[in-house]
Design a binder for these strands. Structure first.
Lengths: 335, 335
DNA sequence: TTGTATGCGTTATCAG
DNA sequence: CTGATAACGCATACAA
């Protein structure tokens, strides 16, 4: 069917060894034979077989990336960075979407192991014991993205969520706000949930503002509708706040929409602040003031770190990526 | 290193053939030996080697998907569908982002060929001759997604852009609009550009409204800022229109924002209509009336078609996916 | 510089 | 039911 190295060898009147050398630029052939072989390759349209190659080299030039979800801008942006890094490294990336299901995650881990990927980027999800155990077992290098493990020594790349939330809250306070609600995406989320709430609380305390637990709204996720619901709650509870800090841009947009529907003006009646700085943060009306995560770079870094681990066989250092406040129009100074 | 089938065989006191049979459920072993072998597999944590397998089976259980871009909601949604279909089929998907570069596309095609993917989903981009020639050469099944080739017989899945644009325009007309501007993403785009403009024109003509070329704004892409710029143009040119049909939701959002900045009310001063029905179409203020493409299903269909081609070895029939008008709040009836 | 032979980890074809 | 053994396509140590 598809021509093999043998076909090339035969047609070029050389041995497969020679062809192989030429293909891999290993010393041991004259320019003439090279030319001759290359010509044959061109003629018969030979494509090396990656599997056969990988079988020997024990390298697939492929990494896997595991996401809970791929149909949101967050993952899309991160994936873009990963893809670019992989491209630079001459590798491909297999995307796996788990829907946050343990079974599906384990299944993918197994698949990636069978496919002998060189490494795995594990994104936006806590690493459970069976996952770690398995990856440990099959000895596949892993780096965590927007996640962290307190129990296992896995390198990660993420922003300091606590500090980012702290900064955001301080910004709000600097703008004159004292009564600030926080919409936390998931109270049980050890990464994107709790630390952000802590940062928020800390900022208040450091500013001499007492924390009011009622001001902390627990949404059940980070999505748009969660933001809408949270805003509803703020409204029915008639929370006496002047600013709302949502721990995702999507939720912040939900707040914007619900506010608008109720005839509430942002930022006049409430200031609102998001988290992530997705592209849609600039597309909203008003444009969203938010704390930015360098999503693309986080993806790129994670992949680069992975490639370094693969190349050196050693652990790499985790990276805390810089966050920053993007000032736009959804926060108004309160005098 | 990682245990092989040999290790299993040795430790279980059977031949590798037997292990292989058990692994693949081929007849020829007793329940006892099966139990014994399975136990050993469990113990030593054996994982079959996909490459060795693929080398023989000539199947990788992997498909490639080629996108010009992965960091937008459009691709993200489509990818999600592809991933689900692949998962159902027991396959993995390698994502390739081309940045619309011919070189990068060709490079990826070569990579996918080397990796011996079972098939390729080629998305959102015209298929150039060298691409087709190459894929023809290496005999990899392909299906086009949101694209179509007039020169080559490649199955595709897409909506009928012309008809969708027609429907959208008719809807606007039904709402009483007679002066309708169209923002076309790219006048040279044979797929998402020209057909949509044609559909728009046709709708006008069928309704006895004459086409005014000035009303057709040529943006240089389908992105948010292109929409902003187009709206600027509409404004400076003082186009006498009551409705604006943008050929992407992102662009529509751009016109929303620009309008808002200039103090123009949507839908009171202008009605605006989008295209795609991305998630963000519901997140805007006002929520966007738009013509929906079933993105997720398109991805899923494309992948399913691909798997069918792979399984049967035959061509499959192209699929025109249904579009629909999603009525929300950015279009107002004009009496 | 070049060719031969072995092995990578499987599956499949034979015998037994 | 089970076990050698030959492929699969390639890289590489070893010879020539």
């Amino acid at each position: 069917m598809t021509p093999t190295i043998k076909d090339v060898a035969k047609k070029a009147n050389v041995s497969i060894a020679t062809v192989s050398r030429i293909l891999n630029n290993k010393p041991g052939f004259t320019p003439e034979t090279k030319l001759k072989v290359l010509k044959v390759i061109e003629e018969i349209g030979y494509q090396p077989n990656g599997m056969a190659r990988g079988l020997i080299n024990k390298k697939t030039q492929t990494i896997g990336v595991i996401f809970p979800n791929v149909s949101n801008m967050y993952s899309a942006e991160v994936l873009s960075g990963i893809e670019d890094a992989a491209h630079e490294d001459g590798s491909s990336v297999i995307v796996c979407k788990t829907d946050s299901s343990m079974e599906r995650t384990m299944k993918y881990l197994r698949v990636l192991a069978e496919k002998r990927v060189d490494g795995i980027v594990f994104a936006s999800e806590m690493i459970k014991e069976p996952f770690y155990k398995f990856m440990q077992d099959v000895k596949i290098p892993v780096v965590l993205l927007s996640s962290i493990s307190y129990q296992y020594p896995i390198p990660y790349v993420k922003v300091d969520d606590r500090h980012a939330a702290y900064t955001a809250t301080i910004y709000l306070i600097e703008q004159g706000h004292k009564k600030i609600a926080m919409i936390c995406g998931d109270r049980n989320d050890l990464i994107a949930g709790i630390p952000r709430v802590e940062g928020y609380k800390e900022a208040l305390q450091h500013s001499g503002i007492s924390v009011i637990e009622d001001y902390i709204i627990n949404a059940n996720g980070f999505a748009y509708h969660n933001g809408q619901e949270a805003m509803d709650e703020i409204l029915v509870k008639k929370l006496d706040v002047t600013a709302i800090f949502a721990s995702s841009d999507e939720m912040a947009l939900g707040v914007l929409t619900t506010a608008h529907q109720k005839g509430i003006k942002i930022p006049d009646d409430f200031s609102v602040m998001g988290y992530d700085d997705l592209k849609l943060a600039q597309m909203s009306i008003p444009q969203l003031t938010t704390v930015a995560q360098p999503l693309y770079n986080m993806g790129k870094s994670a992949a680069s770190m992975l490639f370094e681990m693969i190349a050196t066989g050693e652990q790499v250092q985790s990276r805390i990526m810089p966050h920053s406040i993007i000032k736009r129009d959804s926060v108004k100074e309160r005098l």
